[in-house]
């Protein structure tokens, strides 16, 4: 489903963020990306949703060769992908419901579809009671749930999560991980960059470790170290 072949990414200023990275991720997998700060985890994820393009090497996502993807078709490509970040990226003037609805509205979904799907997704992330609240009336964990709901609104095949628990305390993080696990069990491939040792150790999923842009470890039921 996802394949990287000898991928190298050099940022301007001569920072080699990824060097000759090769990896393959199957449909339905749950993959942790670990490694020290600056090892290239975020770059790995940004290459997958085509926010960045590699300097050499090839990337396939859902059978598409990303180097052959025209820039006008990038938006449609991104619709099959949900993205979650450490800082949630919620819109503060919109309610929980509107934040999730916005993601469907701007890809041209009709009002009836939105009215039907948004409550179902809010139910999935456990925020039905708080649909009319604004982000600043929610806890960090709840805000991250909204952002996951928004990422999942279009039922993506792939979910990219960049340190989704980075700002949360351990017990809240567990709740977020349960949610991502649930989404993964519904068939969505999840790739998550994290620094959280206890989460990686307890989930017992595939771990890819990067060190200064190089894959140094790839275990199917790994732990953090």
């Amino acid at each position: 489903m996802i394949r990287l072949e000898n991928v190298t990414k050099v940022y301007k200023g001569d920072v080699t963020a990824l060097r000759e990275v090769t990896a393959e991720i199957q449909r339905g997998e749950f993959v942790f990306l670990v490694g020290q700060s600056g090892s290239g985890k975020s770059t790995f994820l940004r290459l997958l949703n085509r926010e960045e393009v590699p300097d050499s090497g090839k990337i396939w996502v859902s059978g598409k060769d990303l180097s052959k993807l025209r820039s006008w078709s990038v938006p449609h490509f991104r619709r099959s992908m949900g993205c979650v970040f450490q800082d949630y990226k919620l819109l503060h003037k919109k309610t929980v419901f509107e934040n999730v609805a916005f993601a469907l509205e701007v890809i041209g979904q009709s009002r009836p579809v939105i009215r039907k799907n948004v409550p179902a997704i809010l139910d999935l992330v456990g925020l039905t009671q708080k649909a009319e609240r604004f982000p600043n009336q929610l806890s960090g964990g709840e805000q991250q749930r909204v952002s996951i709901a928004r990422a999942f609104a279009n039922r993506p095949e792939i979910m990219l999560a960049d340190e989704p628990t980075g700002n949360l305390d351990p017990s809240t993080s567990v709740g977020i991980m349960k949610l991502l696990d649930l989404i993964n069990r519904r068939g969505t491939t999840v790739i998550m960059a994290t620094h959280d040792r206890s989460i990686v150790d307890s989930m017992q999923r595939r771990v890819i470790e990067l060190d200064r842009g190089v894959v140094v470890r790839d275990e199917s039921r790994g732990i953090y170290d």
Partner: peptide
């Protein structure tokens, strides 16, 4: 911010 989110979820350029 809205524009960033729109790009993220795959809104087309013309829609934006």
């Amino acid at each position: 911010q809205e524009i960033e989110v729109m790009k993220l979820v795959g809104a087309t350029n013309w829609f934006i």
